[in-house]
Every structure is written in structure tokens, then in C-alpha cells.
Design a protein around this nucleic acid. Structure first.
Length: 451
RNA sequence: GUGGCUGUAGCUCAGUCGGUUAGAGCACCAGAUUGUGGAUCUGGGGGUCGUGGGUUCAAGUCCCAUCAGCCACCCCA
């Protein structure tokens, strides 16, 4: 019988991390969860699929949505299921909140860490399957503007904890520019187009932004000058806010400035230093469903990575599903993109292939029970431990430990068993130390804490 | 979705003007005297050259198709 071997190929855009990388991802996920919960957010999870019409209710994303169908259907049966994989977590959340409106308590604070799928053409940093780590606060009819200040505080706490280098949270309020544009005579239906152009300023430069807006004819030459002057001038947060108060605009503009000023003040009260929060009127976020505060975060030393998390305030989460205004504010971390960028940039390295720091080596087959017992003591003492079970020479066992990134090898043979001791070998420094079995948990805890 | 580039070992790639049994580095496996890893040395396994067709005495090499991958745009996390 001939065996057909199918060549295993990766599927582009569907990343599968190696163990060392997956361990880093788990560590990140743990910290993201812990930080979200520290601010009182509660986890929810929604189905991987939604009814197709639910996903398309916002419009525009059809081409990116993977639909579900059965490979084969019986006579007269429909192979289409009418279901499709969710492409973000916002639409499912809206549906979930509307569905469970009566059972949820508002303001509803939820976090949601799930995979999403998009039928895009993949390339570096762009995936077809990836994790989003969302938090949102959703109010029933109203939601304090101070909530908008909690989001940067959470981001600040989290990225400091993740230790992936210096970062800056950029913040703005959509009402400011859109109000200003309207005030300067830009037609309402042209405002989003102009904002979209301004959003590209980092990529294409101020000159091209100007000529693109000019070409669109949305603004008079005089108005364009004013807009460019406002967005292109660098100012400190304090200077910019006082400058904005001196600029004349319409009511929307003024509301935006008031909101931004209040948020920035509250962010400071939450302990985020000025150095990590930057008001930047050029960030607008492509999605026009944001209506107020908007955020982006980037790494200072790696601007090429782009925004590592972004979000904002919206007036109404679930108008498609429920006849009640549900304003909210939230943010999403694209964990898969973040990690792949960090690996590529060398900001984090994935080296350890085992979550356990200790490998118990085995020298004598007839003492297997003793080795297993040693491992049990270590685990009972809270130390993750693996036992090497294959009949190989010590040298090969240490090589295995080295490759998998264990930090300590525990070595014991005849003489150690007789004396009731074990040898602890530090695999980084090569140093060895003999300790009594009763002391080994204590000693290891000390040594691991030192690193 | 639009445009460009590339497919040779697990990975990164070399392979001349078409010419004999297709190469390197890394990785992997084994060994270099009894219970000590990362280095070095020696040896070893592994490829129907993405797939299908065509041209030719002869194709990894040229042509066509197809599939896959990468990059840019678009969109965004």
C-alpha cells in the first residue's frame, strides 16, 4: 500500500506560532486580561459566527467577510448556512448588548479577547486570522466623558507592564476638526473625506494632504490654509488646548475642545505622565462611526510598526439592533500584528520553549520513582517542572535542556540519593550547587526571583 | 479587490550559454572512553527542482497555463 504524503503548507495570513512564540503570546494575554480586570472590566465571549446580515448591517465590509457553507449538500438542500465569521468584535458586541439589554447592568464594562477573520490579501503585519483584545464601556443613554480618560490610563498601565519600550498615546477628538471644517464652509458630506485625507499626513506628508484636499474642492483656499495651520503646527498639550480656545469655531468644535480638555485633565489625574500622552489633531481614525475622543498608540523607537492599539468614543453602539441610544468608548489591541511586529523588530525575543524553569534529569533507570517524586515536590512548591524520561546520556539531557531554554537542571544519582541531596545546575552560568532535598524548593524560589 | 516580483532540502539560498549521479550554510541524527549542555571536529539522513503541459537529442535552466508565496496600493488591528 502506498502512502500518499500531502505536503504540509502554511496558509498565508493564518499565523501559527512556534512554541517559544506562543509562550510569549500567552504571557501577553495574561497581562492584558489582568490589566483589563484591574479596571473592573468583565470578560465576555461571542460566537465565532454571526448571521451574515448582522455583519453586513454596517455596510462596506462585504468583500472581507468569510461566509460559512457546507462542502456538500443533499438534493434540494442549501449548502449555504447564512452564517459568516466575524471580522471584528464591535458588531458582535452590539448584537450581544442589544440581545441581553435587560440582563446587563450599565455602564456595561466588558473586555473581549477573541480571534477575528478578514478575507484580505495578507502581507507582513496583515493577517486573515488574528486576535483582537477589546475593551469597551457602554452606557445606557449617557456615559460620562471621564470614562474616555480611563482608556489611555489602561493602555499606559498595560504597555508599561509589557515592557516593550517607550510609547506614546495620541489622542484627539473628532468633533474638533469636523466642527472646524464645517465652520469653514466644508459641506457635511465632504467632511469625512477631508478627515480621511488628513489621516494620511504621516504617510504622504502635509504637502500632499494639502494638494489632495485642494483637488477635492471641499474647502476654499483660505479655509485650507487655516486647517493646515491648525494641524501642522506642533504644540505642547497645554499650549494646544489654550490655542484651541482662542480659535473661533462652531458649537461642535467648542464641544470637542471642552471634551478634550476634560479628558486630558482626567488622564493626568489617573497617573499617566504628560510625556506619554500627546494631543494630535491629525489622527482621525478611518471608521466614521467614532464621534468624539479617538486614540492611537505607537512605539517611540519603532514608528514603522504604526498604531499598536486604537479606538475611540461612539454615540450609538447598537442602533441597528435596539431602539435605545447606547453610547460607548473603547479600544482594541491587534495582538497578532503587535507580536509579529515585535518579533520582527527584535523588541521581544522568543527563546524559551518551555514554561517550566526546571528540568529534572534522570541518571539511573531504577531510581525513576525518586526522580518523579522530586518533580512532585517541586510542583507542590509552586515550581513548574519537567522530568526527562528518555534513556539518554546526561550530556544529551543537558543539551535538550539548553535547547528548550530551561534555567535549571536538577541532577541526582547514587551519591546524592545517599546523602539526601540534589545538584542544581544553573544552565545560564554553568554553576552547580548541592542542596538538601528539603531545601531545594526554597533555594530555587530564591534563585528564580533573582533573575 | 488592483498592480509588480518570486517558487530548488525543514529554513536561507547557489546552480554559468539548456548538457552526466542537483550543491552550500544553518537545522536535524550519531560519534569523539563510564554523571555535565552551549564551542570544535568527524560521519550520516534528507530534494521526482510548486503543479500540469509544450519546445528540444537533452529542461532546475526556455515558453504557456495553473497554484502558492512575497511586496505595493486599498483597507485596517
Amino acid at each position: 500500500m502506498e502512502r500518499q504524503i500531502q505536503k504540509p503548507t502554511p496558509i498565508s495570513g493564518f499565523p501559527e506560532w512556534l512554541p517559544a512564540e506562543k509562550l510569549v503570546e500567552q504571557r501577553f494575554l495574561d497581562r492584558i486580561r489582568a490589566t483589563y480586570e484591574a479596571y473592573g472590566f468583565t470578560p465576555i465571549e461571542t460566537a465565532a459566527v454571526e448571521r451574515a446580515e448582522v455583519l453586513t448591517s454596517k455596510g462596506g465590509m462585504e468583500k472581507e467577510i468569510y461566509a460559512l457553507s457546507r462542502l456538500a449538500a443533499g438534493e434540494g438542500e442549501e449548502s449555504e448556512t447564512g452564517l459568516a465569521l466575524h471580522f471584528d468584535l464591535t458588531v458582535p458586541t452590539a448584537r450581544y448588548v442589544a440581545l441581553n439589554y435587560g440582563q446587563l447592568t450599565f455602564p456595561f464594562r466588558r473586555y473581549q479577547i477573541q480571534k477575528v477573520w478578514r478575507g484580505e490579501r495578507p502581507q507582513a503585519g496583515r493577517f486573515r486570522e488574528f486576535y483582537q483584545c477589546d475593551i469597551d464601556v457602554i452606557g445606557d443613554g449617557q456615559l460620562s466623558i471621564v470614562t474616555d480618560a480611563e482608556i489611555p490610563a489602561i493602555i499606559y498601565d498595560l504597555f508599561r507592564e509589557l515592557a516593550i519600550g517607550d510609547f506614546v498615546i495620541r489622542i484627539s477628538n473628532r468633533k474638533i476638526l469636523s466642527g472646524y471644517l464645517a465652520h469653514l464652509g466644508c459641506a457635511e458630506d465632504a467632511v469625512n473625506g477631508v478627515l480621511g485625507t488628513i489621516d494620511k499626513i504621516e504617510k504622504i506628508g502635509a504637502d500632499k494632504v494639502r494638494s489632495e484636499i485642494e483637488a477635492s474642492g471641499a474647502l476654499s483656499a483660505e479655509a485650507l490654509d487655516k486647517v493646515m495651520a491648525l494641524i501642522a503646527t506642533r504644540r505642547s498639550n497645554e499650549e494646544l488646548i489654550s490655542h484651541l480656545y482662542s480659535v473661533s469655531g462652531n458649537e461642535r468644535f467648542t464641544t470637542g475642545v471642552d471634551e478634550l480638555a476634560e479628558v486630558v485633565e482626567a488622564v493626568a489625574a489617573l497617573g499617566v505622565p504628560d510625556s506619554h500622552l500627546e494631543i494630535d489633531l491629525t489622527i482621525v481614525r478611518g471608521l466614521d462611526y467614532y464621534t468624539g475622543t479617538i486614540y492611537e498608540t505607537r512605539l517611540v523607537d519603532h514608528p514603522e510598526i504604526g498604531s499598536i492599539c486604537s479606538g475611540g468614543r461612539y454615540d450609538d453602539l447598537a442602533s441597528h439592533f435596539i431602539d435605545k441610544p447606547l453610547p460607548g468608548v473603547g479600544i482594541s489591541i491587534g495582538l497578532t500584528r503587535l507580536l509579529s511586529s515585535l518579533f520582527k523588530a527584535g523588541v521581544v525575543s522568543a527563546s524559551a520553549q518551555s514554561p517550566a524553569p526546571v528540568l529534572v534529569t534522570t541518571l539511573e533507570r531504577e531510581q525513576t520513582g525518586e526522580y518523579l517524586k522530586l518533580a512532585r515536590y517541586l510542583r507542590e512548591g509552586g515550581i513548574k517542572t519537567e522530568v526527562f524520561l528518555e534513556p539518554k546520556k546526561l550530556g544529551q539531557q543537558l543539551k535538550y535542556a539548553d535547547k528548550k531554554g530551561f534555567r535549571f537542571a536538577l541532577i541526582a544519582g547514587g551519591s546524592e540519593f545517599e546523602a539526601g541531596t540534589v545538584k542544581l545546575k544553573n544552565l545560564v552560568t554553568g554553576q552547580e550547587q548541592t542542596v538538601a532535598v528539603g531545601q531545594m524548593v526554597h533555594v530555587l524560589h530564591q534563585k528564580l526571583a533573582q533573575e
